[in-house]
Write a protein that binds this DNA or RNA. Structure first.
Lengths: 213, 213
DNA sequence: TAGATTGTTAATCGATTAACAATC
DNA sequence: TAGATTGTTAATCGATTAACAATC
């Protein structure tokens, strides 16, 4: 069943999923759309609409059954289908993402890390080994990996990208501040940290001097 | 001059800014809206509209002057106004963000890190020191910090949040997968990594077996 | 039951795209 | 100049919100 789910809905569904996980940790069995909406500060009819989209029926008295709804989201978003990925760049960010066990629950399966610094080679983090970048083409080919998570310094981002593309990588999750040039059939997702940050401080008074009467 | 810039535009403007920074690194003096649009795979009239919003006038023959446009974005988005922040959680992710020098250029000024693990205390990363969480209330108050970047484990996310709120923190950039409950006057930005990731693999064939004919 | 809840349609709002005259 | 480019309006598209009958 291939549902047509927009990016916006996708993002909210994962947030609902986080809430449901929290509910389970606190033994909450049912949750209503206004409750979910309040936590995320969105409209409650939006929650209902999103859930209607993945064809989940709530209970008109209690709201939604936590376990069931969680399972429904997981199957609609296909968390159980593993998507293999390599992390490129074994710095702090690379290691942080390699340690992030939560990814597995969402179907992202990090197999290994790559770096060109010899001091990093063979380090094992969370059961994932660091290989030299020269080993990349061979391993991408053998393991048929399509996703790369890019955490190298800005300066080398484009040249590493060119290498990734030449090996057959089709999806690049870009954590660097560089904008990458790639062929038509390769997709880049910019994890625009700075942009996100501005979203919640711009137009607010989080600055040092909030004079400006 | 307070412009009314939506989140969508804000996000694109920071991406344009990244492109302009790349241009400067490669000594490119002018760039056109179709060129910017191609790099981001968006519509070129959208680029022009965004730039009209921050009142930047292009050149009808060459396009936009890289240096000038960059400066215009910086002032429109007030990158020069420092916004002080603390990082809560001195794990890999906390350290990665502390090392991320790029933040300063965008007005995000990380002052220090906090953790409750005694082994981490007094470590200095990128000139930022790790303090024990018990020192937080005093320092938030003395330095009038309003922003916290939350990188603790999921399990402690809510209790640490309660502490942050009690000290007067008003903006929480949440890198944990927990959904935080906060009072009305506190804002949370969920850095929904998993949601972002699904955005670009969902509906695609990045999975292991792409049979399904 | 009464009151809270869902499911869904209609109304609104905002964002994106198309189109093109004016310009250098 | 000719051709590429901007600035801007109108048209389209999609996402959010309001409203409310039906339900348990």
């Amino acid at each position: 069943m291939q549902l047509n789910i927009s990016d916006k809905v996708l993002e909210r569904l994962t947030l609902y999923h986080c809430i449901l996980t929290d509910c389970i940790l606190h033994n909450v069995e049912f949750i209503s759309s206004p409750k979910i909406a309040n936590l995320l500060r969105i409209d409650d009819s939006q929650v209902r609409k999103d859930l209607a989209l993945i064809k989940y029926q709530g209970n008109k008295h209690n709201g939604y059954a936590v376990h069931e709804l969680k399972a429904t989201i997981e199957s609609a978003l296909r968390f159980e289908q593993p998507k293999d990925a390599f992390i490129i760049g074994a710095g702090n960010l690379g290691f942080a993402l390699a340690k992030y066990d939560n990814f597995v629950n969402y179907g992202l399966n990090v197999l290994a890390l790559f770096d060109n610094d010899n001091l990093k080679i063979d380090i094992v983090v969370n059961k994932k080994q660091v290989f030299h970048l020269t080993k990349l083409p061979n391993l991408v080919d053998r393991l048929q990996v399509k996703i790369a998570i890019l955490t190298v310094p800005r300066e080398t981002a484009q040249e590493v990208t060119d290498l990734l593309v030449s090996t057959g990588i089709k999806y690049i999750w870009n954590f660097t501040p560089a904008i990458l040039e790639v062929p038509e059939d390769v997709e880049v997702l910019n994890e625009n940290l700075v942009g996100n940050f501005l979203k919640f401080t711009y137009s607010h008074k989080a600055t040092k001097n909030h004079d400006k009467t």
